Computed example of a mutant assay.
Amino acid sequence: MSYQQIERMTPAAAPARVGQGTAVEQSRAVAEVQAAVLVARQFPRDEAMAIAKMRTACAQQELAQRAFFRFPRGTSNVSGETIQLAKELARCWGNIQFGVAELRRDEEYGESEMQAWAWDMESNERSSTTFIVPHARWAKGKAEKLADFRDVYENNANNGARRLREMIFTVLPVWYIEQAKSACAKTLATGSGDVPRAQRIADCVGAYEAVGITVDQIETKLGRPSAKWTDMDLGQLQVIYQSIQRGEVTADEEFPAPRVTVDEITAPAAVPDAEQSSTWPTAAQAGSGAHA
């Protein structure tokens, strides 16, 4: 092991003295935690009210549209719940604190040490994780080093949000999370509630056509014509559309262009006969008929 590796593994010594501002902040943080624990014990959560708040929140289209994510990984797609849904569920459940912090930034080795945590102040259940985030982004099959400070910040924030989501879900009851997921999926599937399904299908097709995806591509993906799309189909399409809008997945990845076989390329073009031609008159026929 080289001297540089040993030096890196050795933790930096703490400063010999603590400034007045740091001491005040440390005392304030301790007092804040003590007060939060005391309030949580004095005013315990009402689970029935928490469930009612959750159902009201999940019935909103604005939350349901941001509740799920979808992105490609290898030859498949990964989907799940977003940090926005996790934060909203923590707010509705109550007496929960959470956060993510950058503990150390190493410019020499191009990485940040970060920590994400969530704490149920009432049950005293706490979950935390410490992780290393390289100052790099995977693109074009290789890791590209990030030089811009803003890119480093956004990269740390994105990685921290994913860990924070998992920490929040760790301290929340599983049944509570599953009910919220079902409620959000139902909201996506039914839309505003008073809009007919035919109108919602038309709106869906129009939104996808605006980003260059045809109705034929959607029908191929779902395996059924648009007239037979179900509420669950519309909910799935809503999640995919929002993921495309957020840049989590591209339209080509979700709706690849159909492959053209050699036989289709070399096959001669079919010429319709008179019996199979359209019943609408051609321009020449229309012109001659006008002078008859």
Rank of each mutant, 00 (worst) to 15 (best):
W175G: 11
Q199T: 13
R73K: 06
K142G: 00
Q217Y: 13
T220R: 09
P134H: 09
E253Y: 05
R91H: 15
M49G: 12
C58R: 02
Q238S: 14
Q61V: 08
D106I: 06
T130K: 06
D231Q: 04
Q97M: 08
W93P: 00
E253H: 07
R45T: 15
Q65A: 01
R91K: 15
F68C: 06
I132M: 13
A64M: 05
R163T: 01
A52Q: 15
M167T: 10
V37D: 04
P258M: 09
V100M: 09
K53W: 14
A90P: 01
L237D: 02
G99N: 07
A286E: 11
P272F: 08
R163F: 05
V271D: 12
G235D: 03
S288N: 00
N156H: 07
E144H: 04
A13L: 13
R259G: 05
T279F: 02
Q5P: 04
A210I: 01
T250H: 08
D263S: 13
V260F: 06
V211W: 10
I132L: 15
Y208E: 07
P281F: 08
Q34G: 10
T130E: 13
A64L: 07
A29Q: 04
T10P: 00
K140E: 10
D252M: 07
P258A: 13
A31Q: 06
E108A: 14
K221V: 12
S128D: 14
N95W: 01
S128Y: 12
Q276C: 03
A139K: 07
G206E: 11
I96F: 03
A180E: 11
V33W: 02
A183S: 15
R162V: 12
A13S: 05
T266P: 00
T130N: 10
H135T: 07
C204L: 06
S226N: 08
I177N: 05
S278V: 02
K228P: 02
E209Y: 04
T170S: 09
Y3M: 12
F169V: 10
A267N: 08
S182T: 15
A118L: 01
G235I: 05
K87Y: 10
L38D: 14
A257M: 10
S226I: 12
P196C: 12
Q84M: 12
E253W: 03
A210M: 14
V239D: 03
A29V: 02
N158W: 09
A48E: 14
M167R: 06
R163M: 07
P15D: 00
T22E: 10
R246P: 02
S127H: 03
E248G: 09
R162T: 12
P281K: 09
W175N: 12
R55D: 14
N159C: 14
V37M: 04
N159L: 11
E108I: 12
E253I: 08
P15S: 05
R104I: 15
T82F: 02
A210T: 13
P268S: 09
M54Y: 02
V78E: 15
R41F: 09
P268W: 05
R104T: 15
P281N: 10
Q65E: 08
D148C: 03
A283E: 10
P44G: 11
R45L: 13
N155V: 05
R126Y: 07
R70Y: 08
L237V: 11
Q20F: 04
D194A: 12
A269T: 12
K142P: 00
Q245P: 00
I218Q: 03
A283Y: 07
M1Y: 13
E111N: 08
A290L: 03
G212V: 12
V152D: 03
I213L: 11
A23K: 00
